[in-house]
């Protein structure tokens, strides 16, 4: 089906984009890579009367490193992240996770910012952003704000971005010390979305005891969430012992699971246990081997 008619704007800077959004309110919709929005418009599940295409705003693209943090422009494509030599050296879980998204054509158009703001319950970046404690910079008609990933995913397909705001940058602190990060997902064989995906970060002391961890789960409930109970169970424990097994069992706690035709609630619960364990083990391996990151998917 073709989409409803709409008015098209392709502003060349953020201020112009925000002004258009402020003028049209909730009637306007921001277009990033289009791989969620355009199919929704074609099914007429979304019928915005105004489209604000961010693809012609150069300041929203690119990867910079500064003061121990990496900043990624919201319109940076998954492919640009996948192939970034800078990220492969500084934070290799990002290119590794990017390579697991969709397929090459999706990655050529789809953007990290679009994925985060769309807040698909089965998106990959929400889990990775939570595990890496990302900060999300928003610009709106009332100025700039920064939101932590922990406060960003509000509900099913709902992020903290207001209708007159644009996500401009994602800033991620580069973990230092004996740190490993992993993203493991069970991918839907057709769409590539995460039926369940788990991102894990572990920071170890010299005796392999866990100083800090962050575990984030996507594909289980309405939004990506952290498994804070499991994180607390790991703190101070030697990860060579059984604590990873116990933390993985507890990762389901507090999640209101969603089932669908492909995977029931019970099946997703089991996937969360299995993939939390795999992701923690992979992050632990990465931390102890000095490789920094691992990512993999199973179909």
């Amino acid at each position: 089906m073709i989409t409803e008619t709409f008015e098209y704007h392709a502003p060349e800077d953020v201020q112009a984009a925000v002004a258009i959004l402020a003028e049209h309110g909730p009637e306007a919709k921001v277009l990033a890579g289009g791989h969620s929005l355009v199919p929704l418009m074609r099914l007429r599940l979304a019928t915005p009367s105004v489209i604000v295409d961010l693809n012609r705003i150069p300041q929203l693209r690119g990867i910079t490193t500064e003061n121990g943090s990496i900043t990624i422009g919201a319109m940076t494509t998954h492919a640009a992240i996948e192939h970034s030599a800078e990220l492969k050296a500084m934070l290799p879980v990002l290119p590794a996770a990017a390579a697991l998204i969709g397929d090459p054509m999706v990655r050529n158009r789809g953007t990290i910012g679009g994925s985060l703001v769309h807040a698909d319950p089965a998106g990959d970046w929400p889990a990775v952003a939570l595990a890496l404690d990302a900060q999300l910079q928003l610009v709106g008609s009332h100025g700039e704000t920064t939101v932590r990933a922990d406060d960003f995913f509000v509900d099913l397909l709902t992020s903290a971005v207001e209708p007159d705001e644009i996500l401009t940058n994602i800033t991620i602190p580069i973990p230092t010390g004996r740190v490993g990060v992993s993203y493991q997902k069970f991918a839907h064989p057709a769409s590539g979305y995460a039926v369940t995906g788990v991102a894990a970060m572990v920071m170890l002391d010299d005796a392999d005891a866990c100083i800090e961890s962050r575990i984030a789960i996507t594909g289980a409930g309405a939004t990506a969430v952290r498994a804070t109970e499991s994180e607390a169970m790991l703190r101070g424990t030697d990860l060579n012992g059984g604590s990873i097994d116990r933390a993985a069992e507890s990762a389901v706690s507090g999640i209101d699971f969603l089932g669908d035709i492909y995977a029931s609630e019970e099946y997703r619960e089991q996937l969360v246990r299995v993939y939390t364990k795999r992701s923690l083990l992979a992050a632990f391996r990465a931390a102890t081997s000095g490789h920094g990151a691992e990512a993999a998917k199973t179909i």
């Binding site: 289009g34 791989h35 355009v38 074609r42 054509m105 050529n108 158009r109 057709a190 769409s191």
Partner: peptide
């Protein structure tokens, strides 16, 4: 619906699904 790839063309030197680009 942006899944099958039959509509793939190169746009500015990158393979894209032409059913998902205006």
């Amino acid at each position: 619906t942006s899944q099958c790839g039959a509509c793939t063309v190169l746009l500015n030197d990158q393979a894209v699904k032409a059913c998902t680009v205006f």
